[in-house]
Amino acid sequence: MEDKFESLKNKWGQRKVKPSPKLDHGNMLEQAIRSQQRSVHHHRWTIVILSVLVFVLSAFFYYKAPMQELISRMGIVLMIGGVIVRITIEVISRKRSNSIKYSIDARSAMEKTSVFYQWRKKIHGPVTITIVALYSLGFYMLTPEFATYLPLKWVIIMDVGYIPMAIILIFFIKKGINDEMERLRAVAELQEELNVE
């Protein structure tokens, strides 16, 4: 039987593989450093933005609009607490993601990646949705007390205006969930392929 593969394999070593001409080692290092910094900055900015949100909310409710009613205070705790939980998750997520090393064997790497995305599935799904729901609940718990200080028109604008913001937020969360579930499916497929006997 003709073994075309073996005959091609014999020629394979003789062919000239033209190395990528794009970058010399200096430019490659530059690009690697840039990429590393980009990834660190991206993560850092997410945490900075969320931390600023906590700071602004805290300052606003402490100095500008100190709430007197218990229900309002509970609302503030839900809002600020939710964001703090989100920051904590972001930090843990980054740590777990960094613990996946590319220099281990493929089977172990896919296993670790799969465990990471399984964890993200839990976080992105129920936990994030719960945080958004509690944040929204907290926001609306402020309405009765706001209504005693502000004209009704402004209270209605605030409450109604929150809805499109929440919809946009939910849209992005859902998109994030779908993307990560796609990655989880892909990694599960790779794991299956690696485990074929």
Binding site: S20, K22, M28, Q31, A32, I33, Q36, K101, Y102
Partner: peptide, 17 residues
């Protein structure tokens, strides 16, 4: 070529280990 670059970016990140 793009993939080769991505690999060497990961090599750089992993090099201290």
């Amino acid at each position: 070529q793009d993939l080769t670059q991505e690999i060497f970016i990961n090599v750089w990140k992993a090099l201290p280990n």
